[in-house]
Design a protein around this nucleic acid. Structure first.
Length: 816
DNA sequence: CAGGGGCGGGG
DNA sequence: GTGTACGCCCCTG
C-alpha cells in the first residue's frame, strides 16, 4: 500500500452513505496538493449516570433513536470508560452515535432523564475531536498508508488505512495567495455590496501578481481586462484553482472582501466553487462573518493580528497601512480613493493607479502572513487545531483549546461551557486585583525597575493552583493562601491539572530560551515558539476568571492575585527596610530610587530576594532609568492607566498612559506633548521645556504655525442627518455637503477652528476655505496644546498661569 | 454606574 | 452543523 507524507493545512468532514468521512487536505512532501480521507472515526460524547441507575440508563441509551425531518439520529454503542472529572476518578458512558450531528440531538433528548447526572463533551466539533483524539497536529508532517480513489476533486483523493504523525517537522513555505478587492463607492466610505460592483480584484503570491478588472484602461500586463463583473468573479475561481494555494490570505476578508464577492456572485446567480471538492465559498455569521472554502485555509490576517499580536504592538489602529508600517516597515501606496468611482465612470485613463494600489495591498497582505508565519505555526502546534480555527481564536479560546488538548493526556473530561445564567453569576463576582503603589507625582532621577518574571503563571505553577487541588482533604490547614476573606489552600502532595500544564509551558519555554541564548543566529521559529508559549502562559490567569471559561474558578483566580500581592509587597517592604525609596509598583513591577546607592546594590538586593523564592518564581532586573516623570491622574478616574514616562541610558523613551495618539487632537498638540517630555527627560531642563511651549504658543498667536498642524481629522460615523447634536465634525461635514462634496458615513473630515464668537461648531471651517490667519490661536492653546502638557508642568512646579499669559492686545509676543 | 448600542477592518 | 457572535468604548437613563 502506498505511503504519503504531507503537511495538513485544512480539515473538513462530509457525510457519505450515512457515515462521516474526514477529509484531510495538505501539501505532500513531493509538492503536490492532496486530500487524504479517513472513514474510521466515530462521533461520541460522555454521559455520567446517576448512582444506581447505570444499567437502566445503559439499556435506554442503547435503543435510543431520534427521527426528524433532517434524518435519523441514533446511539450506536455505549462503552464503559474511566475518566477523571475535576481531577478525580470517575466512571462514565462513552456514547457513540451514528452521525456527528446526532451528538447534540441525542444529548438534548436525554437532558431531562432522571438516570442522567450530566453529559460532557457534546459540543466539541467533530473535526476538532478527530484531530485531538488522533493526535494529529495541523502543519506538522503526517504520514498515511493510502489507496487512491476516483472521487471528483481538484486534487487527488486518497483513502487512508492508517495515519500518524511522524516527526515535528512543520510546513515552512506554504503556497500563499493574497486577495484584495476594490469596489465602486460613489459615496465616500459607505459600503453597499448589494448595489455597488467590485471594480478590481487583486491577487498576489510568490511569482504571481494579477489584477482582474471589467473595464478597459491603459495598464501594465499584470492587469487583465474581462467583459463583465461576473467574469471577474469567475476568473477569481479559476485563478485560485490555477495557483493551488494552501492558504488564501486577506486583510479583513472575513468582514469585507469575501462576503462582498459572495454577495456579487449571488446577484448574478453564480456559483463560486473555490473548494477543492468544488463546493462553494461559504460565508457564515451575520455580525461576525467568516469565510471558508474546503481545502484552502482562508486566513484573515487582520483578525489574527488584532486578536493575538495586537496587544504587543505599538499601534492601536489596525488599518493595513498602520500595521504594515509597524510590522513590515512599508506602507500602502497613496491614491485618491475617493475619486475611484468618478474615474471609473468618466476617466478610465486614470484607473491604472488603482490597479497598482490594489495589487500592492494584496502584496502587503501576503508579506504580513509570511512575516507572522512562525508565530502562526507555533500557535497551531501548541493548540492542535486547524489553521483556519486558530487564526480566528481569541486568547481565552486559545488557552481553552490548549487545556482541552492537554485534557486527553491527563484523561480529564472536558468541562462544560457555563450557561447564560452561570455566566451572569460569574460576571457579578469580582475578586480583589493586583497591588498598586501610587506614585507621588514628580520628576525623578536614577530609577531602577524590577519585575517578577511571568508572575501569575509562576504563581499558578509554584503553588499548585488548580481546580482539583483546591481545599483538598489531605492538606487541611497547611500552606494557606494569603487572603483575609477566605480560607483557601492547595494540595501539596498531588499535582494539579492546570498547575501542571502551566508548569510544563514555563519549562518548555525556558528550554527554548536556553537554546536561543546559545544560538548566534536566532532561529525565528524557536523565537516564535518562545513568544507563543509566553503569550499562552500569561493568558491563563485571565482565563481562570473569564466568565465563559470551562475551567473557570473564582477561588483559583483570587488566590493568584492574593499570592501576587503578597510577593510584591514583600519586595517593597524588604527594599524599604534596607533603605531604598519605593517610587511606584503595579502588579509585578517595582520602581525604586537609587538615591545614594549603586546599581550593584540593586542587583545584590535582587539576588537576596531570589534566594528565598519558591519553585519557578524569579525577580528580574528590568532596567535602569536616569530620569522619569510621574504625573497625577485625572481626578475621579480611578483605574485609569498610570501615567509615567521614563528615559533609559540609550535615550529611549518609555511612555505609558499619555494619550499622545488621540484621533480628534490636532498634530500641534501631539507634537508639543512629545517634545516637552523629551526635553524634560533627556535634558532635565524644565525651563527649556517651558520656553519651547511658549515658543509654540507664540507661533500659534502669530499665525506662523502651519495649517496642517491645526487641522483636526475625524471620520463621520453616520449620515449627517442622523446626528442629533451638531459637533464640530458634523458642522464641517455640513459645509462639505453645501459645496457639493458627496459625504456619508465613513467620510474623512478635516477641519480647522477659526476665530469668532459662539459655540465651536459655528467656528468650524474646512482647511481650503481659509488661510493661516483665520484659525483661532486661543482655541488651540486652551483646548488642545495646554491640556496635553498641563500635568507634566504641574509636576515640575508650573501652574497653568505660569506657562502662558492670557491673550493681550499686544502685537508682540506678550509672555516673555 | 450599569447597561445598551455601535463599531472595528474594508472602498 | 457535536449550530448562532467578540470585546471595547461611548452614550444615555
Amino acid at each position: 500500500m502506498p505511503i504519503v507524507q504531507f503537511f495538513l493545512t485544512d480539515v473538513q468532514y462530509r457525510i457519505i452513505g450515512g457515515k462521516a468521512i474526514i477529509y484531510l487536505y495538505g501539501r505532500a512532501t513531493d509538492g503536490e496538493q492532496i486530500c487524504v480521507t479517513d472513514a474510521h472515526f466515530e462521533p461520541y460524547f460522555y454521559v455520567l449516570p446517576k448512582k444506581g441507575k447505570e444499567s437502566s440508563l445503559r439499556a435506554e441509551l442503547e435503543k435510543l433513536q431520534v427521527k426528524d425531518e433532517s434524518g435519523t439520529f441514533s446511539v450506536v454503542r455505549v462503552d464503559d470508560v474511566s475518566k477523571r472529572l475535576r481531577e478525580h476518578e470517575i466512571n462514565v458512558f462513552k456514547v457513540v452515535t451514528n452521525l456527528p450531528s446526532a451528538v447534540p440531538v441525542i444529548r438534548e433528548s436525554i437532558k431531562g432523564w432522571d438516570s442522567v447526572d450530566a453529559a460532557y463533551e457534546y459540543d466539541i466539533k467533530y473535526v476538532r475531536r478527530y484531530l485531538l483524539d488522533r493526535k494529529l497536529t495541523p502543519l506538522v508532517l503526517t504520514e498515511a498508508n493510502v489507496e487512491p480513489t476516483q472521487e471528483k476533486s481538484k486534487v487527488p483523493v486518497l483513502s487512508a488505512k492508517s495515519i500518524r504523525q511522524v516527526s515535528e517537522e512543520t510546513l515552512r513555505n506554504p503556497r500563499i495567495l493574497a486577495v484584495d478587492i476594490e469596489t465602486y463607492n460613489p459615496k465616500g466610505k459607505l459600503i453597499n455590496p448589494k448595489e455597488y460592483p467590485i471594480v478590481m480584484l487583486g491577487l498576489y503570491g510568490e511569482d504571481f501578481q494579477k489584477v482582474v478588472s471589467w473595464k478597459q484602461f491603459p495598464s501594465e500586463p499584470f492587469v487583465e481586462h474581462v467583459p463583465s463583473e461576473a467574469d471577474v468573479l469567475l476568473r477569481f475561481v479559476e485563478l485560485v484553482e490555477q495557483v493551488k494555494p494552501d492558504i488564501l490570505v486577506s486583510y479583513n476578508g472575513d468582514g469585507f472582501d469575501l462576503p462582498y464577492i459572495r454577495t456579487r456572485a449571488d446577484k448574478y446567480k453564480l456559483r463560486l466553487p473555490v473548494g477543492l471538492d468544488y463546493t462553494d465559498l461559504k460565508i457564515q455569521g451575520t455580525a461576525n462573518k467568516t469565510a471558508q472554502m474546503a481545502g484552502v485555509a482562508h486566513v484573515d490576517i487582520f483578525r489574527f493580528i488584532r486578536r493575538v499580536i495586537g496587544r504587543s504592538m505599538k499601534t492601536d489602529t489596525f488599518t493595513l497601512d498602520e500595521v504594515s508600517k509597524e510590522l513590515l516597515g512599508t506602507q500602502k501606496v497613496a491614491v485618491p480613493l475617493d475619486r475611484l468611482a468618478d474615474d471609473w465612470d468618466n476617466h478610465p485613463e486614470n484607473l491604472h493607479q488603482f490597479a497598482v494600489y490594489n495589487v500592492h495591498d494584496a502584496r502587503l497582505t501576503n508579506d504580513l502572513i509570511v512575516k507572522l508565519w512562525p508565530n502562526i505555526v507555533e500557535l497551531v502546534k501548541i493548540v492542535g487545531l486547524p489553521l483556519w480555527d486558530v487564526s480566528r481564536m481569541s486568547f481565552s479560546q486559545l488557552v481553552e483549546w490548549f487545556v482541552i488538548k492537554q485534557a486527553a493526556d491527563f484523561n480529564e473530561i472536558v468541562l462544560n461551557k457555563p450557561n447564560y445564567a452561570e455566566q451572569m453569576e460569574r460576571m457579578g463576582k469580582r475578586f480583589k486585583g493586583a497591588f498598586v503603589f501610587e506614585p507621588t507625582p514628580g520628576l525623578y532621577k536614577d530609577i531602577v525597575v524590577f519585575d517578577y518574571k511571568s508572575l501569575y503563571p509562576s504563581i499558578i505553577a509554584s503553588h499548585n493552583i488548580s481546580i482539583g487541588t483546591l481545599n483538598c482533604q489531605c492538606c487541611q490547614g497547611i500552606k494557606r493562601v494569603p487572603l483575609e476573606t477566605a480560607n483557601l489552600w492547595f494540595c501539596t502532595k498531588r499535582k494539579g491539572f492546570i498547575s501542571t500544564i502551566i508548569a510544563d509551558l514555563i519549562e518548555r519555554r525556558n528550554r527554548i530560551k536556553d537554546i536561543l541564548k546559545k544560538e548566534e543566529k536566532k532561529d525565528p521559529l524557536l523565537s516564535a515558539r518562545s513568544e507563543s508559549l509566553k503569550l499562552l502562559a500569561n493568558a491563563f490567569y485571565g482565563y481562570l476568571g473569564f466568565a465563559q471559561a470551562r475551567w473557570y474558578s473564582f477561588e483559583c483566580g483570587e488566590s493568584v492575585t492574593a499570592y501576587g500581592r503578597d510577593y510584591i509587597t514583600q519586595v517593597i517592604e524588604k527594599a524599604q527596610k534596607i533603605g531604598f525609596k519605593v517610587l511606584y509598583s503595579d502588579t509585578d513591577s517595582i520602581f525604586l530610587l537609587l538615591d545614594s546607592r549603586s546599581k550593584n546594590d540593586a542587583l545584590t538586593f535582587i539576588d537576596e530576594i531570589n534566594k528565598h523564592l519558591p519553585g519557578v518564581m524569579e525577580l528580574d532586573y528590568e532596567n535602569y532609568y536616569p530620569r522619569g516623570i510621574f504625573v497625577a491622574l485625572k481626578s475621579g478616574t480611578e483605574g485609569a492607566k498610570k501615567r509615567y514616562a521614563l528615559i533609559d541610558e540609550k535615550g529611549n523613551l518609555k511612555i505609558r498612559g499619555f494619550e499622545t495618539v488621540r484621533r480628534n487632537t490636532s498634530p500641534i498638540a501631539k507634537k508639543v506633548q512629545k517634545t516637552v517630555l523629551e526635553i524634560v527627560l533627556k535634558e532635565g531642563d524644565a525651563e527649556k521645556a517651558v520656553a519651547f511651549l511658549r515658543q509654540k504658543v507664540d507661533e500659534l498667536r502669530k499665525h506662523i504655525t502651519n495649517m496642517e498642524e491645526v487641522t483636526i481629522h475625524t471620520v463621520l460615523q453616520k449620515e449627517v442627518s442622523e446626528y442629533e447634536s451638531v459637533g464640530p465634525h458634523v458642522a464641517a461635514a455640513q459645509r462639505m455637503a453645501n459645496r457639493g462634496t458627496p459625504i456619508g458615513a465613513g467620510t474623512h473630515i478635516r477641519y480647522v477652528v477659526t476665530k469668532g464668537k459662539g459655540p465651536i461648531r459655528d467656528r468650524v471651517h474646512l482647511p481650503d476655505e481659509i488661510t493661516k490667519d483665520d484659525y483661532d490661536p486661543e482655541y488651540y492653546i486652551e483646548n488642545q496644546v495646554i491640556p496635553g502638557v498641563e500635568r507634566i508642568f504641574a509636576v515640575l512646579g508650573f501652574k497653568k498661569e505660569d506657562l502662558v499669559q492670557e491673550k493681550t492686545q499686544s502685537t508682540l509676543g506678550s509672555f516673555l
